[in-house]
Amino acid sequence: MTELLLHGYWRSSAAYRVRIALELKGLPYAQVTHDLRIGAQCEAGYRDLAPQGLVPALEADGTVLTQSLAIIELLDEIRPTPALLPAAPTQRALVRSMAALIACDIHPLNNLRVLQVLRQEFDAGQSQVNAWIGRWICDGFAALETLVAAHGEGFAYGDTPGLADCYLVPQLYSAERFGVDLSPYPALVAAGAVARELPEFARAHPARQPDADPA
């Protein structure tokens, strides 16, 4: 496979997921940044690659893939080890459902473009935006907490890092950014802490990215 080119933004949780997966797989990649704060992802040149104007997008072998779940599953197929999904079909489906709980039910409601609509079209202040963010994170985390408590053995699922951790760690980062109280979710916090200790997760952290704001 030719070099992988990841289009993203340092603080995008969806791009963060893909970076974690790339690091876990040990796959070399280059990055192109699109500053979401100034709408760089909406520029015509990028929309030619990613028609939705969203990050991440991955260029691989002449194909451009969007949507983090599709990208991560491709990485799992082209580099089967270490596996990000369990071997048994029902277990694989369970882990996918854990990832989808974040990707489909939490993150879209807290995406930057949604928050901009709240601010610009509904005159929401920052306290209202933060309440909105917290509401949907807590709603999803309450459900995910039961799954991690039941199926985690150190990590979000089982005793090795995998797909669920690729989604959990960035969502925890987002929750912490906005001051969400995480005390009701001890299993999530514990699994996230274990994952964050790994060098692969550390390298993928937003603050370690070349386009990150100065500390």
Rank of each mutant, 00 (worst) to 15 (best):
L65R: 05
D105C: 09
A88N: 13
A207H: 11
T66D: 00
Q209K: 02
D61M: 01
L74H: 14
Y167A: 00
A212P: 05
N130V: 15
L24E: 14
Q41H: 14
A30W: 07
E145P: 03
A50P: 04
P28K: 11
V114R: 01
S127I: 09
Y185V: 03
L5M: 13
A195V: 14
V18K: 01
L54C: 04
L112W: 03
Q41T: 11
F201Q: 01
A164N: 04
Q209Y: 05
W10Y: 15
V148Y: 05
R19N: 13
L65Q: 07
R208T: 14
H151N: 13
S127K: 08
V169P: 01
W132C: 06
A215M: 07
A175Q: 02
G192M: 09
D35S: 10
D123A: 15
V148M: 04
V117Q: 00
L147Q: 14
A44D: 10
V117N: 00
L22Q: 08
P184E: 06
Q120L: 06
R37D: 09
W136G: 04
Q41K: 05
Q209D: 02
P214K: 12
E3G: 10
P199F: 08
P108A: 01
L27C: 09
Q171K: 07
A44F: 04
A215Q: 11
R113N: 07
H34E: 11
R37W: 14
I102W: 03
R113M: 03
I133V: 15
A195D: 12
W10D: 03
L75N: 09
G179D: 10
D61P: 03
R135E: 13
P214N: 12
T2V: 12
A88V: 14
D181G: 12
D35Y: 03
W136A: 00
A124V: 04
L182M: 13
D61I: 06
G162T: 11
L109W: 10
N110S: 08
R203N: 06
S12L: 06
T160L: 00
V18Q: 02
A202Q: 14
I72D: 01
I72S: 01
Q41M: 07
